[in-house]
Design a binder for these strands. Structure first.
Lengths: 159, 159
DNA sequence: GCAATTTCATTAATATGTTAATGAACCTGT
DNA sequence: ACAGGTTCATTAACATATTAATGAAATTGC
């Protein structure tokens, strides 16, 4: 087994840890968490987005997205709508206030991106993007959903 | 602003989403969560690890690590020790049972790595690793810790 | 020596991730 | 029409992430 710190997953996590705190600091200055930001980001690009598509676009798992949208809705930044033709669906849309946030937050976010571009050599950046896209495209054979052989390590468990 | 789905953070998240479920399925078959696996992974490489160092090596935030180690300890996989020379510290060490897990889980994990290597062209992989390490090394100037200008979007907030 | 500071793990409060289950709405074939 | 199956958002239960605060233990400054 290779050295833990040099494994691909840990490299991915370290890369994220290097950049995301900068972005999150910007989001926080405007009262947003990262998932909340992602939802708004999608809604700035698309008028009205089906819940399912929103989860896919933001990479926020559907069960988490329920709470995220709840809080954005409570804050008056988005609305939820049930279309008559399929009342199971939920269509999410940004309010005027939610749309207005774009102009407020974007400049500071752009600046972080600028720092990134400035700090990363173009060829390194290109190789990185190519590698990431290759990974994302892998579509490794879906997990066989083998039944668990052992119970998970959970709180109440004593020896 | 660039297209959301093509931003570097989303590319990083998509790459992780493409590979981690495979690994987590293996961990789950042995009753482990991903952070739990990471902790054990470090303890297999180092006899006894200071809490602080364990958090850094696993990239698990210290407050989260408290619970992770609690559960591993309750499951009999690790122990916590307070050194006499500095009673604030906590030294974590794997038990015999925790050490035994390595031989049980490693083969399946190696297999996932093998799938990854087989699916990713060597030059793409090299470019990816180079890019990730460059990102991780960035050390963007620490966040200025500017005071929040707006309250976070929280549950109880109504318009 | 001791008050002030700093370090360290932990707790607290809130938000999200993960997996399974639920319940309503739709669909399918008959 | 309707029983059975499917889709969809949501809830449930648990574990973790994030930020701030706490409290005990070490260290520093004077």
């Amino acid at each position: 087994m290779q050295v833990f710190s040099e494994s691909l997953p840990m490299r991915l996590y370290r890369a994220l840890n290097a950049v995301m705190p900068r972005f999150r600091a910007v989001f926080a200055e405007h009262g947003l968490t990262e998932p909340q930001w992602r939802v708004l980001r999608v809604l700035w690009e698309h008028e009205e987005v089906p819940f399912r598509a929103l989860a896919a676009a933001t990479l926020v798992p559907a069960p988490s997205l329920v709470g995220v949208v709840d809080r954005l809705q409570a804050a008056g930044l988005v609305t939820r709508r049930r279309p008559a033709r399929d009342r199971r669906q939920a269509l999410v849309r940004a309010t005027a206030q939610g749309l207005a946030l774009e102009r407020a937050v974007t400049p500071a976010v752009e600046q972080v991106y600028a720092e990134l571009r400035a700090a990363l050599a173009p060829d390194i950046h290109a190789g990185l993007v190519a590698g990431l896209d290759a990974l994302a495209a892998l579509e490794l054979p879906a997990v066989p959903a083998a039944p668990r052989q052992h119970r998970p390590v959970t709180e109440g468990e004593h020896t």
